Computed example of a mutant assay.
Amino acid sequence: MFRQASRLLGRSSRLPRVRAMCTEVPANSNKDSAFVEAWKKVSSTMEPPQTPSTYMEPRPPTPSSLPSKLTVNFVLPYSSQLSGKEVDMVMVPATTGQMGVLPGHVPTIAELKPGVLSVHEGSDVTKYFVSSGFAFIHANSVADIVAVEAVPIDQIDASLVQKGLAEFTQKLSSSTTDLEKAEAQIGVDVHSALNSAITG
């Protein structure tokens, strides 16, 4: 009985506080409306914020018919290997497997793994070994390929590749820390891919 009375008393004592809070709302709304009016006066003189897209050139339109050629831009951090080159096809070593890119390919972003990138232009095929990077295939039949490192296959010394593969394989078997194992595994993977590129 005593508990019920204290509960009822507690509820009734809260009501005036709640009513008092409710009566304060119009005062706050007056302040809000004053702020809104002041903002309207200032905002008309302000320029809208600029975004990166404001400074970018518009993307070329998607052609209505399938183009006969694929435009390739192949760049490295220190040089441009191909710029606006029209080719028939490009094969890129994506992490999901070898990916052929033809004119009209669906827009795609693919991460590259160590392997062979081949550029097909008629009967001519130019091959590069790439270490890693990304391929951006756009809807307008443009492929932008960005690699960390790349070298034409015919400039790779097979004896140095075999030597490097043997060294990293030995390091992998003798490494004691996780960092040493990871570094050695990367060396084995890259040199194995180089070896496959030369022999295959």
Rank of each mutant, 00 (worst) to 15 (best):
V72E: 01
P103H: 10
E24Q: 12
H138S: 07
D154K: 10
G187H: 01
T51F: 13
W39I: 10
L82N: 04
V101C: 06
V146A: 11
K31Q: 15
V75P: 00
Q162D: 10
F168H: 12
D124V: 15
S159C: 01
A94P: 03
V125I: 06
L112I: 03
A20D: 14
K41R: 12
H120I: 10
S29H: 06
A5W: 12
P49V: 10
S141M: 01
S44E: 13
M21I: 10
S123C: 02
P114A: 12
M1L: 08
Q98V: 13
K171I: 03
A135F: 00
L102N: 10
G104S: 02
G164M: 11
A135I: 02
D154A: 08
I145T: 00
Q170V: 09
V151M: 13
F74A: 00
P103D: 09
T199Q: 14
P93F: 02
T71K: 14
D154M: 15
L179K: 11
F2P: 02
T95N: 01
S173H: 08
S132Y: 01
K31L: 14
T71C: 12
A147V: 08
L8W: 13
L194C: 00
P48C: 02
F35S: 08
S83Q: 15
G200R: 04
P77T: 03
S159H: 09
Q98N: 10
A197H: 04
Q4R: 08
E167L: 15
F35A: 05
G100M: 09
F136V: 15
S159P: 01
L165V: 02
S44N: 10
V125M: 05
L172S: 09
A110E: 13
G187D: 03
A110T: 00
Y78P: 00
R3V: 12
Y128K: 11
Y78E: 12
S6T: 13
A193Y: 06
